[in-house]
Design a protein around this nucleic acid. Structure first.
Length: 741
DNA sequence: GAGTTTGAAACT
DNA sequence: CAGTTTCAAACTC
């Protein structure tokens, strides 16, 4: 086959125009070779056998590419939505019934899809290859001809190159794929995996998973996702020419709709599949879903899906496992610069979850990386897997969990779970619960405002920089796209009053502080609420306390009274990593008891990060996960609202400088962002240098009164002995309304 | 699910 | 800037 492939590739090149006789040639050859190999692979054959679309061998094809295939690409960047996003920097959540979204015109898509099918039904031509090469060289993903989004979800050129050059890489130019979208790793990945699997099973959908430390999933999901159908997901559908929405799509489910299937049976299947996702909330990973669906896959395991996955070649080594992120990184789903509110991101505890430890031959693992908090310099994916696997509940377990807390407090997961539930049941009650959980994530916030019109910081959605969505029970809500102007104006006003009003409330320090030897530095205690709390009665042991809620200890900035914050008291005691005094009866607060247990566990343990070769660090969060114990914030009620993926923020470029896959294991701070990182003073932007710890100290009013939030950098308490400073790293990338306007 | 508590946000 | 009011989440029953 190799020889033939080689020949084919050459033929293609030569016959199609001799345009390759350049340095590009080798590259093209490689690509062509990869493609050819793939086409000749059993998997491909299998796919072909299932697909109504008959592949055409790479021969003398004077293919005419429908203009639509490429013409729309640029639109991605000109989409009104994109502009809107940029302008508002306000996260647009899925708008279930917002009529202001003309973008999703199924008609257009249909047209495109049709064309696409035509294109795909033939071997890609020179033109395509050229285009492909061109785009690849540009660091652009080669996507299906008509998908604008391909540009939005661009991976690095390196990644692409890797993909293409990899012999077994599933990545290939349009062939057989309805479209190829490089979804941004994270959430996309997690979201897509199920699809990939399904797609693989169906054989008619192209799907590709490339794992390379980072996970790239190219998934082509079949036919149209009906817009507006089921009352939901316009964002699930892909619409050529709508870059903005694509952004959203990527941002949300990352589900890429492919062209319509000609085969009715397949179409039905597809519809079924897509229907499953219709109920999913935007930006919520379909983690559970994956699990749920996995059951099916398990049953069919070993067959196609696994085969296909394996065929991805790149997934070798540590990558035999797909690392999937649970929504934490929704951030990743968002194009850099497109802001998600930090707070939204904040809570996102990073969650790693094994989606399918044993179901597939490859042992797919979904990991939620990222996150804002870094912990150790990137363990390899394998390591992560190893660490995670033992803890992760099986899918079945997850599936069986209904009211029980999800083992992993990932809003996204929850969402996914919800979605899964949705698929299986429609009881109002369930739905309600689902909604609640769905709202958890950063991206999935939901509010219940009655008087603020969701235009004040009281509103979690607003505060998080996201629009209110269906799950919200708000009244007179103005926090909707249709009131964008109002929202922006209000936001601006609030920011004028307090520039950091929309900034994450919790400044999370790095574990690096541990180098100081300070026990407290080994824990989330290194993180602090930027302004501190002012609790009087809760003892900082309830979520009324923003510090506690954020999973951080109280600091000198707090004006709290009788602080008993389990994450660290104002006076420095009770910090995680040190013995935590459990003064209150544990029965007082279920959450607390859990938390305390976790803490105690931690206390007895060693440095979490130091010992986690085989086990995750024993931070409360981590410990909780490890033992499948409820997280401190897990409650029968709403899961930590922010445990979501804070993704958002992460996506908002927060992690721009962070390596993907850097897992963060943090406490559960459900509500706030952890997108903070410490940077050395010398690395600190000048404008932030003012806000050194000293400034932080100064920010504390002598009389203990609340002071204006420190601007720029948020100082940590002096107690945090470190040469490093906690910086609100998100600031630069935070979508300030005052910018670019 | 309604009512209460709490503390942040907003207002004066 | 301090005090007060408003607000909505968290919590309790």
């Amino acid at each position: 086959m190799g020889e033939r492939v080689e020949i084919s590739a050459k033929e293609s090149i030569q016959e199609e125009g001799e345009v390759m006789d350049t340095p590009e040639r080798s590259k093209n050859n490689q690509i062509a070779t990869s493609i050819s190999k793939f086409e000749d692979s059993p998997v491909f054959n299998f796919l072909n056998s299932l697909s109504p679309i008959k592949p055409v061998k790479p021969i003398h094809i004077t293919q005419t590419i429908n203009p639509l295939s490429f013409a729309t690409l640029p639109s991605v960047f000109t989409s009104p939505h994109v502009g809107s996003l940029r302008e508002s920097r306000f996260l647009r959540r899925h708008q279930l019934s917002d009529p202001s979204k003309p973008e999703f015109s199924s008609d257009d898509r249909s047209t495109v899809d049709t064309n696409k099918v035509n294109v795909e039904s033939t071997k890609q031509s020179d033109e395509q290859q050229e285009n492909l090469n061109q785009r690849v060289s540009d660091g652009e993903v080669v996507g299906g001809p008509s998908y604008d989004c391909s540009k939005l979800v661009v991976e690095s050129a390196e990644d692409l190159s890797y993909d293409f050059n990899s012999p077994n890489s599933g990545l290939r130019p349009s062939r057989g794929l309805k479209a190829e979208h490089v979804a941004d790793y994270a959430c996309n990945t997690s979201t897509l995996v199920p699809f990939v699997q399904d797609a693989c099973q169906r054989g008619s959908y192209g799907s590709e998973v490339n794992i390379e430390g980072n996970m790239h999933v190219l998934c082509v999901v079949g036919p149209d996702e009906q817009v507006g159908e089921g009352g939901e997901p316009e964002h699930l559908s892909t619409q050529p020419g709508d870059g903005g929405e694509m952004t959203e799509i990527a941002d949300s489910h990352d589900i890429i709709a492919g062209p319509p299937l000609d085969n009715p049976a397949e179409k039905m299947e597809y519809e079924h599949l897509s229907g499953l996702y219709r109920g999913m909330r935007r930006r919520c990973l379909v983690f559970e879903m994956a699990g749920g669906r996995r059951k099916h896959m398990d049953e069919n395991s070993g067959s196609d899906s696994s085969a296909l996955l394996q065929s991805d070649g790149n997934t070798s080594s540590n990558d035999q496992k797909l690392l999937m992120r649970t929504g934490n990184d929704s951030s990743r789903r968002v194009l850099p610069g497109i802001g998600l509110h930090l707070n939204a991101l904040a809570t996102t505890p990073k969650d790693y979850k094994i989606v399918n430890p044993d179901s597939s031959a490859t042992g797919r693992l979904l990991i939620g990386p990222s996150s804002s908090v870094n912990f150790h310099p990137s363990p390899t994916g394998q390591e992560l897997l190893n660490n995670i696997l033992p803890v992760a509940p099986s899918d079945r377990e997850i599936d069986s969990i209904d009211n029980a807390l999800l083992p992993v407090e990932d809003a996204c997961q929850a969402s996914g779970y919800m979605a899964n539930e949705e698929m299986n049941q429609n009881s109002p009650k369930k739905k309600r619960r689902r909604v609640e959980q769905a709202g958890e994530g950063e991206a999935c916030k939901r509010c219940n405002c009655k008087k603020s019109k969701c235009l004040k910081l009281y509103c979690e959605c607003f505060a998080a920089g996201v629009y209110c969505v269906e799950p919200c029970a708000c009244i007179d809500c103005f926090n909707k796209p249709i009131h964008e102007d109002t929202v922006l104006a209000t936001r601006k006003q609030i920011e004028s009053r307090n520039p950091l009003a929309f900034a994450p409330k919790v400044i999370r320090g790095p574990d690096s502080l541990s180098e100081t030897g300070d026990d407290s530095s080994k824990t989330p205690a290194s993180a602090r609420h930027k302004r501190g709390c002012n609790c009087k009665k809760s003892g900082c042991l309830k979520k009324y306390c923003e510090c506690y809620q954020g999973g951080v200890g109280c600091s000198i900035n707090c004006r709290c009274e009788g602080c008993k914050n389990a994450f660290g008291r104002k006076d420095g005691s009770g910090v995680i990593g040190t013995e935590v005094e459990v003064e209150d009866d544990e029965t007082d607060m279920p959450e607390k008891s859990m938390l305390d247990r976790s803490f105690q566990k931690t206390a007895t343990g060693n440095d979490p990060e130091q010992n986690n070769d085989s086990a995750p660090p024993a931070t409360p969060l981590r410990a909780g996960r490890q033992s499948s114990v409820q997280l401190p914030f897990s409650s029968k009620k709403k899961p930590p609202r922010s445990s979501l993926p804070s993704t958002g923020s992460s996506s908002s470029g927060f992690y721009a400088g962070q390596g993907f896959g850097k897992p963060r294991f943090l406490p559960p701070p459900p509500k706030f962002d952890k997108h903070f990182e410490t940077i050395r003073e010398d690395e600190m932007p000048e404008f932030l240098q003012e806000g050194s710890p000293v400034s932080g100290i100064k920010s504390s009013s002598p009389n203990g009164k609340r002071v204006s939030p420190p601007h720029g950098a948020v100082g940590t308490s002096p107690g945090l002995r470190s040469s490093r400073k906690l910086i609100l790293q998100s600031i630069p990338s935070f979508p300030s309304l005052t910018q670019n306007q």
